[in-house]
């Protein structure tokens, strides 16, 4: 018995001291709660309205689809797709994103499904980016945890507006169109997903917060999904903003090539090789297309140039050169 007491490190007494301890425990409980509420105060992270951010904005053109049980993923994606000009409804999208065993839709499935419809899936993170996008007219799919961190209840919603003066975010959520949520509630539920947001955009539209790296990567993702008509537009959109994007030049050529439009591919690779005269890949791809177009002499020159430039892919360039030389003979 004695040893056990020593373990606990304290002894219970009777009478007043008992009450005192209960009082102390209560104070501690309140203090801890206050501490957590303090952590969750959203105002610090949320940007103030300013020159680039109007204090309120609401999108009128995002349709609302009520969701069936657990189908918040398909419903939100269908809304975003419909806004972007794709005919989609919850039932057609559901088999593309919904995983019955987990009764939900995973984020990568949402991204992949958007791409399957020829749309650019552009993930964003954080309140500042989200507000910028909404004010630029882009609805944002957000992942919320409506439960607790240790007992999550994941939920997708579409942000269609905000009013910073009133401190509210407007979302299409579950069975309620234009639900007005206080910033505090929205922040608490959204923060638990790491402020995950997703834009679903037609490839001619650039996100307001786009960076060259992320946007070109998003179009590369679309290319992986085989949506070459869309990626031609996507890479062209990227080149308007960033004329010096190597990825967009090569990607444009590759997209045309995949579509069988070899003349346009040739033009794109030619421009890539002119803008990036030290990039072997541009010359290699140019050589391949020229060879397939029957311009053997030019193809040979481009292939030799690629091999001469070298780099980590030099063996691939050599293969192209050998293939062209073999075709010559």
């Amino acid at each position: 018995m004695l040893a056990r007491r020593a373990d606990f490190g304290y002894e219970f007494h009777s009478g007043r001291s008992d009450q005192f301890q209960a009082y102390l425990a209560f104070l501690l409980f309140i203090a801890i709660n206050l501490m957590f509420i303090g952590c969750a105060m959203p105002q610090r992270k949320w940007p103030q309205p300013g020159e680039h951010l109007p204090s309120r904005h609401e999108l009128e053109s995002v349709p609302f689809y009520p969701q069936k049980a657990f189908h918040c993923g398909p419903a939100t994606l269908a809304m975003a797709l419909a806004w972007s000009g794709i005919r989609a409804d919850t039932d057609t999208v559901a088999p593309e994103v919904f995983t019955p065993s987990i009764k939900g839709s995973l984020q990568p499935a949402m991204i992949a499904a958007a791409r399957r419809h020829g749309r650019i899936a552009y993930p964003i993170s954080g309140p500042a980016a989200m507000l910028m996008e909404v004010s630029a007219g882009h609805p944002v799919v957000v992942l919320q945890n409506l439960g607790l961190s240790w007992k999550p209840a994941w939920h997708y919603a579409v942000v269609v507006g905000y009013d910073l003066d009133q401190g509210i975010v407007i979302v299409h959520s579950m069975n309620t169109p234009r639900k007005r949520l206080s910033l505090r509630v929205f922040e608490n539920t959204w923060a638990r997903s790491g402020h995950w947001g997703l834009l679903v955009l037609p490839p001619t539209r650039l996100p307001a917060t786009a960076t060259q790296h992320d946007f070109v990567s998003a179009v590369v993702g679309l290319e992986k999904a085989g949506q070459y008509q869309a990626t031609v537009q996507g890479y062209k959109t990227a080149l308007v903003r960033w004329p010096d994007s190597l990825g967009a030049h090569i990607g444009l050529g590759n997209s045309y090539y995949a579509l069988g439009d070899k003349r346009s591919a040739e033009a794109a690779f030619r421009q890539a090789s002119r803008r990036f005269p030290t990039n072997g890949s541009a010359f290699n791809n140019l050589a391949q297309v020229l060879w397939e177009l029957g311009k053997h002499q030019e193809a040979l020159e481009a292939a030799r140039k690629a091999v001469k430039l070298g780099g980590p892919l030099v063996n691939r360039y050599r293969e192209t050169l050998q293939q062209i030389q073999a075709g010559e003979r």
Binding site: V216, V220, E223, K224, L246, G247, I250, G251, G253, N254, Y257, F276, N279, S281, A282, N284, N285, Q288, V289, G311, P312, L313, R316, E319, T320, Q323
Partner: peptide, 20 residues
Amino acid sequence: QSCLAAVIGTETALDVARGQ
């Protein structure tokens, strides 16, 4: 195999360029 010897994919070209 002759397919493999064709154009360099966008992702590969980008990765290599970023590394360089």
